[in-house]
Write a protein that binds this DNA or RNA. Structure first.
Lengths: 224, 224
DNA sequence: TCAAAATACGAGCGATCGCTCGTAAAAGCA
DNA sequence: TGCTTTTACGAGCGATCGCTCGTATTTTGA
C-alpha cells in the first residue's frame, strides 16, 4: 500500500448506482441515517403534500442538519426516489404474500375485496404512499414518480390475472390491470375522505364495479 | 394640501376594499383585462402545471404588469378561483345542451359513450380543465379547487340519473354519480397518454365498465 | 497510533416568487 | 374644464427554499 497511495480506484465503480454521494463506501451508521431521513420524508410528505415538502423540513424531522441530508442524497428528487424505491420493495412483499395462497380459487369479488382491504392497510402503514401513487396532472415531477409506482403494481396484478386465466392474452390482462389500478386510484380518495360506515358502502360499490368488469374474463372457474 | 402634509387619514378607510375587486365598480376595460388574465392563466397552468404556475408568468403571458394583475385579483388563489368559476359556468352549458335531448331514451352504454366523448372534447377546448379536475392528494390547495369542480359535475350527473330513473333514491343516484366521476378521473389519464387507436380501445373498456356498473339501476327502460 | 474517509453541523448564498408601493396615464363625471 | 376613480406600470421588498461550504467530529483501516 505504501507504493503510491491511490488504490481505491478499483472499488468506486460498485456503489455509485443508487443514491447519495458517488464513490462513497457507506458505513452502517450512514445507512441508518438514510432510513431515518426517508422515514422523516414519509411523514412530511403525508402531512404537507408533495410540493409543500421542503428538504429543510425533512432534515429537521429526521433530527439532522440540512448538510447531513445532502451527504446522502444529492438533491430533493433523489430523496423522493428513495421513497419510491422503498415502496416498490415493500409492495413486492405485499403482493407476493397476498397472491401466494388460494387467489386462483377466489371469486372475482373475493379477489377484489381482498386486494382493496390490503391496499387500505398498506395506506395506513405508509401514509405517503397514497400521495405518490395518486400522482397529479398538475405536477410533472410527481407524475413521473407516480407512474413508475403504478407500473410496478400493474406488473404484479397482471401476473395474478394470468394465474387465474392461464390461457388469456397477456397484453389483454395488462390492459385490465391498468384499468383496475386507474379506477382504484380515482375512487380511493372517496373512501379515505368518507366516514366509517360510508366507507364500507363505497368499498362495496367499488368492489361491485370491478368485479363486474373483471368477471367475464377473470371470474373464478365454477367450483362445481 | 401643503398645510400639514398629513391629511389623507380620512381617505384610508375607503381604500381597503378597493384594492381587490370587492366593491367592484369595474369598467368595461377592466372586465376585459380580467378575461385576458384568466386566458393567460389557463395557458400557463396547462403548460407548467398547477404548482409551477407563477403570478408573474401569468401576468407576462397576458401582456400585463404584475401590479395590474393584483389590481383585479387579490392573490394567486383568487386567479385560480376565477378559472374555476369560468369552468363551472361553461360546464353548465355543456351539460344542459348534452342532456336536454333524448338522454332518457339512450341505453346506459350510449349515455356513457356520449358523455365520455363530450368530456374529451371539453378537455381539448380547455386545456387546464383536466389539471384542475384531476386534483391531487399531494396538494391541499389544488384538491380544494378540484373537489369543488367535481361536486358541480356530480350535481349535474345526479340530475341525469334521476331523469332516467325517476323513482330512484336521490342519495343513491348521488353516490352512483360520484363513483362514475371518480372512475373517469382515474382512467382518463390513460386515455390522454395513449396513442390514437389505443385510445379508442381504452374508451371501450371504460364504457364497458361504467355501463356494466350503472346498467342494473340506470339502464334504459325496455324499448318494447 | 494516525491519517484518510465518512459523517455531522448550521449559517447563509443565490435564486425564485408572491405581492407591494409610489407613481402616472386613461376614463367617468361635474 | 377640473376632480375622482379606475387602470397601468415595474422595480424591488420580504420571505422561502434548495443547496453549498468551511469546519469539526467519529469511524475505518493499516
Amino acid at each position: 500500500m505504501s507504493e503510491d497511495g491511490v488504490q481505491e480506484g478499483a472499488q468506486e465503480g460498485a456503489r455509485e448506482g443508487a443514491q447519495g454521494r458517488r464513490g462513497g463506501r457507506r458505513q452502517e451508521r450512514g445507512r441508518r441515517r438514510m432510513e431515518q431521513i426517508l422515514d422523516a420524508a414519509e411523514e412530511v410528505v403525508a402531512e404537507q403534500g408533495f410540493e409543500d415538502t421542503t428538504t429543510n423540513a425533512i432534515a429537521a424531522r429526521a433530527g439532522v442538519s440540512p448538510g447531513s441530508l445532502y451527504q446522502f442524497f444529492r438533491n430533493k428528487e433523489e430523496v423522493l426516489d428513495g421513497l419510491v424505491e422503498r415502496y416498490t420493495a415493500t409492495s413486492r412483499e405485499f403482493w407476493s404474500t397476498r397472491l401466494s395462497d388460494g387467489t386462483a380459487r377466489m371469486s372475482a369479488e373475493e379477489l377484489v375485496r381482498s386486494v382493496l382491504t390490503g391496499v387500505s392497510e398498506f395506506k395506513t402503514r405508509r401514509p405517503a404512499f397514497w400521495v405518490l401513487f395518486h400522482g397529479s396532472a398538475a405536477s410533472p415531477r410527481l407524475e413521473r414518480v407516480a407512474s413508475s409506482i403504478r407500473a410496478d403494481i400493474g406488473r404484479r396484478l397482471t401476473e395474478v390475472f394470468l394465474l387465474r386465466a392461464p390461457g388469456a392474452d397477456p397484453a389483454r390482462m395488462e390492459l385490465l390491470a391498468a384499468m383496475c389500478i386507474a379506477t382504484v386510484q380515482g375512487v380511493f380518495p372517496m373512501v379515505m375522505e368518507a366516514g366509517e360506515e360510508r366507507r364500507a358502502e363505497i368499498v362495496v360499490e367499488l368492489t361491485r364495479m370491478l368485479a363486474g368488469y373483471l368477471g367475464p374474463e377473470i371470474g373464478a372457474e365454477p367450483p362445481a
